[in-house]
Design a protein around this nucleic acid. Structure first.
Lengths: 464, 464
DNA sequence: TAATTTGTGGGTCTACATTTG
DNA sequence: GCAAATGTAGACCCACAAATT
């Protein structure tokens, strides 16, 4: 997507003077919003500078600032001092990834919900929970953060990820997305800023947009987000938090190196950022000798929320995630939990607890590792030139593609060809990127042969 | 709580001039916040007028406005043109009702989770779901709004409440509070205003506070919120939505009469308010000849979200609620659902579905009616002078008490005496009230004899 | 009823920081 | 490395509306 290169001669956007009425700034913002929404202002377009528009409309330029601010709050545009104001990417399409509406003749390589082949073990756990005969207790209203024995299992699980907390500093939530929601609502205000990777998980981008929280992208390299650039950005503006997926960034598959973690921790501490450490894949590498990892939680415990999702790891139908938090977040997080969810399904929590206690959780992880390795090998056969993920057992790949077609066309054409994959534009936090990628899920095709079929369709598409 | 009657001579609040530094408005807001939080400014206190403070601090008065605005956004204070600016009620205590931390020797008459005696039927439903052998399907990631047969059951249930929608206009959520969260996030912006009764559900008050949504209390009478006052308020300011619990307001037990519903619907339509119709108890009276009720949803369908919670009705351990919505909310609501929850627990949804399909949902409702009637009769024996609820089978009572002690002392003293009940101050939306009440839950004592014990403790306490 | 008090909303001015050329 | 372009932030002024006296 080229930035409008005519710059401002003539003005890239001319509001209709006749529609302007007091209050001017809302009137202007409304026009801008509708022109963005109806498509006459495409993502990436540079808007006229505030002073120029003010001149044109015969207003003080700070009135334009106010109009732009309204749209900025809605995530429609963003501005950089010295450079200008631009229409945000994907303002019109929702980039949310839901797994819904897939045509039955299409192979799923978009969604990453994580190898459903071993749900049978979860079914078994369900049966054994039901047979134990204490369901009645679970069905009463109590223990909104989780029943004591459920929390104990959660803590045990977290310990294996290197996160050590007691039962007053952990709680059971309804899945990772729900945990993120509560975290953002509880600890941030509308208008706050959170640093993220340049590419990050689409549903987090959308959630931030919903809550009027601004994401500030920080560039990174093969070791993860660059700490020096984070430091720089923190000096420039008030950044309130940072969102990271250290063991396997979604979608880029980058794992943050230990030394980078230490550098980042330093900056996080210095600028008092609230760190949201979203670990969907930590369990895949924890316990592996060669991939020993330590959570950022252990480096800056007093500022970190550590999220361990069980949905991808164990079973996507179970909406369970564990959150570990420090004492200074305790009151706010629990307050947020009570007032947004009241509590998590006791039954789901119990089933996951059963899986942890009877050891099958580990069996599932082990089997998913095997599947991930197998699927990864297949992928490598088709795309040997694709840079391999820094993390082993990653459930998806980040495939560079030629920069020829408008991003959403690529998705559509591939869907017509019979596979669903997601384009890098869905994951982009702010600016339009110069490179393009596809996130290729290896875990949801349904079988290895379907995966293989899907990859061959993809390869053929990219070669023509 | 008396409004500070010294008015402003000397000023009720003097910020420390030496602490003022640029930017003044944040500096001032910070001082105000900390003085409210540390208790030196009590709820209800009238703050100095903006111009007076400005004079004192040698600033322009709109700079004070900005400082006040910051605190207003946080819900710490509120202002009325012509009258002044006041410290909000319960700024320091969380009024959230969670059911947690009840001392074991205390009888629960605070929480209203709703007669857990029939959870055995839910256990049965769980077993039969497990035996059916299609759990594997439920555990895969699909149908984020609910599986088709689950939605079909939901629609059937909603129909019995007089709400008619198709499967594209209903979705399954993780309980009523979660539905409210998604509704507020999806359809409102920070700073928006929602009209409510003068007393309303505490967790809704807290949720609104969390999301920076302002609640505007509208007075009512025995037929519910007064439509003329709503009209008046809508003319005065931009109100974006309205929150009602028509069949049984929590905590006041008032049922909105049919004619009042029609008047309210008229105002709601005229001012294009988004109506959140929260029906926890509709199922208790639906189907009863003498209490026929029609939902506001049927009067202004295009502007209404109808929430039917299953947690209180059927089983509080099941986090399931149904939401019915009109086409124009569809996109936003589903977008909100996907990005805050991803989806609801399929297992919980399936169990509730099973209960609806096998008829036991109705059996549970019928049995809870009996319990509610029985508990109500006991209550009447102890407190014959307490005005009876307009709704039959209400799970709690709204008991007027003498206006002698500071509100939260009453709760504490009663807890020491052996019962937990909640004081009306917890439910108050804005101003301090002149009358005081207790909300007395009849449904959670555990047994009728415990309830009776609790009521006798309460009676004794009130008589001394 | 008119005058006063008080809060709200919107537009303007100035200082300043960052990016770009 | 400086000047110009450009966005950001804070304070001020004025018009106005509602509540009080």
């Amino acid at each position: 997507m080229p930035i409008n290169s005519f710059d401002n001669f003539p003005m890239s956007w001319k509001p209709d003077k006749s529609l302007m009425k007091q209050p001017y700034f809302t009137s202007l913002a409304d026009q801008l919003e509708s022109d963005i929404k109806n498509g006459s202002l495409a993502p990436g377009t540079k808007l006229p500078p505030q002073r120029e528009l003010a001149d044109y409309l015969d207003l003080n330029f700070t009135t334009i600032t106010r109009a732009y601010n309204l749209c900025k709050k809605k995530g429609l545009i963003y501005g950089t001092t010295g450079r200008g104001t631009f229409v945000s990417p994907h303002v019109n399409e929702s980039i949310t990834i839901t797994g819904a509406d897939l045509s039955p003749r299409c192979i799923e390589m978009g969604m990453v919900s994580g190898f459903e082949q071993y749900n049978e073990l979860v079914v078994q756990a369900t049966k054994s929970v039901v047979e134990k005969g204490y369901l009645n207790n679970l069905y009463e209203y109590s223990h909104p953060t989780g029943h004591p024995h459920q929390l104990a299992a959660a803590i045990r699980w977290l310990e294996q990820m290197g996160v050590h907390v007691d039962s007053n500093h952990a709680a059971i939530f309804s899945g990772a997305q729900n945990t993120l929601t509560v975290a953002l609502i509880s600890l941030f205000e509308p208008g706050d800023k959170i640093a993220t990777d340049e590419y990050t998980y689409s549903n987090f981008i959308e959630l931030a947009k919903l809550l009027n929280i601004q994401l500030v992208p920080i560039s990174g390299d093969q070791n993860g987000m660059r700490a020096d650039l984070l430091e720089l950005q923190c000096k420039q503006m008030k950044i309130n938090g940072i969102y990271l997926m250290p063991s396997c960034a979604n979608p880029t598959t980058i794992q943050i190196s230990l030394s980078r973690k230490q550098e980042l921790a330093e900056v996080i501490r210095r600028h008092k950022l609230i760190l949201i450490e979203d670990e969907i894949f930590a369990s895949m590498i924890s316990g592996l000798k060669n991939y020993e990892t330590i959570p950022l939680f252990s480096l800056v415990p007093e500022q970190t929320l550590y999220i361990s999702s069980m949905s991808k790891t164990l079973c996507s139908g179970m909406r369970i995630a564990y959150l570990a938090f420090a004492e200074n977040f305790r009151k706010k997080i629990l307050h947020g939990l009570f007032n947004t969810n009241i509590k998590t399904s006791s039954l789901d929590a119990e089933i996951i607890t059963e899986l942890i206690l009877n050891g099958n959780a580990y069996a599932i992880v082990e089997k998913k590792r095997e599947l991930a390795a197998k699927a990864g090998a297949i992928f490598k056969r088709y795309f040997p030139e694709c840079p391999p993920p820094t993390t082993p057992y990653c459930f998806y790949r980040w495939l560079p593609i030629p920069n020829t077609k408008p991003s959403f066309h690529v998705e559509k054409e591939l869907e017509q060809a019979g596979i669903r994959v997601y384009h890098s534009d869905r994951f982009i936090v702010r600016n339009q990127a110069d490179k393009q990628f596809l996130r290729v899920s290896l875990s949801d095709a349904g079988s290895m042969s379907k995966l293989e079929k899907g990859l061959s369709i993809l390869k053929e598409y990219l070669e023509t």
